[in-house]
């Protein structure tokens, strides 16, 4: 309960700060954010868009790990966790894609540009879509669990290839001034604090939703088992 209250207040603060704090060219006090050349107010998306994409990736990895656990133990609980993570990942993936596309329309003039990071999120969306399509077409629970685990492992292994391939093919449009390949972060402390809090907050929301849904699915499963007895 305490966790939820703190999370609620924290995220509210992050949202207010992310939207409302003024952007000035030479931030002097702690409540001012720096102006990002060329982006101005549009830079505020970093507080919301990047965390959704981050959660999407975390969820993918979680789902993958629970999938492997299922294959090792054949415990259906791991499959429940794996599919729950995948479901949330899918949700956050859609959020990241939509927020990204809207932002892209205002910044680069089109909803979709096949920028490397757009391509990667698109691939993740496809993988999630395929994963759920596969699940819905297998009737036997145990078979469904192992096949979808195998599929997500194979899919997970092909994703790193994009890291090598995409730079060979196109160059990124994503804003370098804030996040760049060299790992340098051009944020003032305030911006960094908001960004990191938002990242933490989104991850905590994901964690909370994950636990809630796992509990729910577990109860559902147990009830189904009881009815069959």
């Amino acid at each position: 309960m305490v966790f939820k209250i703190i999370l609620g207040i924290g995220l509210t603060l992050v949202i207010i700060a992310g939207i409302a704090l003024p952007m000035v060219s030479n931030p002097s006090s702690f409540f001012e954010l720096p102006v990002v050349p060329g982006l101005e107010d549009k830079a505020r998306i970093i507080f919301f868009h990047v965390p959704t994409a981050w959660v999407c990736v975390i969820a993918f990895i979680t789902s993958l790990i629970y999938g492997i656990q299922y294959l090792r133990t054949k415990e259906i609980l791991y499959d429940i966790k794996s599919v729950t993570a995948a479901g949330l990942g899918f949700l956050f993936c859609i959020l990241a894609t939509v927020t990204g596309a809207i932002w892209s329309k205002f910044t680069w003039g089109a909803f979709w540009n096949w920028d490397p990071r757009q391509t990667s999120i698109f691939v993740l969306l496809l993988i999630y879509g395929a994963y759920f399509a596969l699940r819905s077409s297998i009737e036997v629970e145990e078979k469904r669990a192992s096949l979808s685990a195998v599929y997500s492992i194979i899919a997970g292994l092909t994703v790193p290839f994009f890291i090598f391939i995409i730079p060979r093919i196109v160059s990124s449009l994503h804003p370098d001034p804030i996040i760049n390949p060299q790992g340098k972060i051009h944020m003032n402390p305030t911006m960094l604090v908001i960004f990191l809090s938002s990242l933490t907050g989104f991850t905590a929301v994901y964690y909370w939703m994950f636990n809630l849904r796992v509990r729910f699915s577990k109860l559902l499963y147990q009830q189904q088992m009881k009815e069959q007895e």
Binding site: V123, L126, I127, Y151, A155, T158, F162
Partner: peptide, 8 residues
């Protein structure tokens, strides 16, 4: 199922 795997 194949497309995301084959895309790279």
């Amino acid at each position: 199922l194949s497309f995301p795997i084959l895309l790279p």
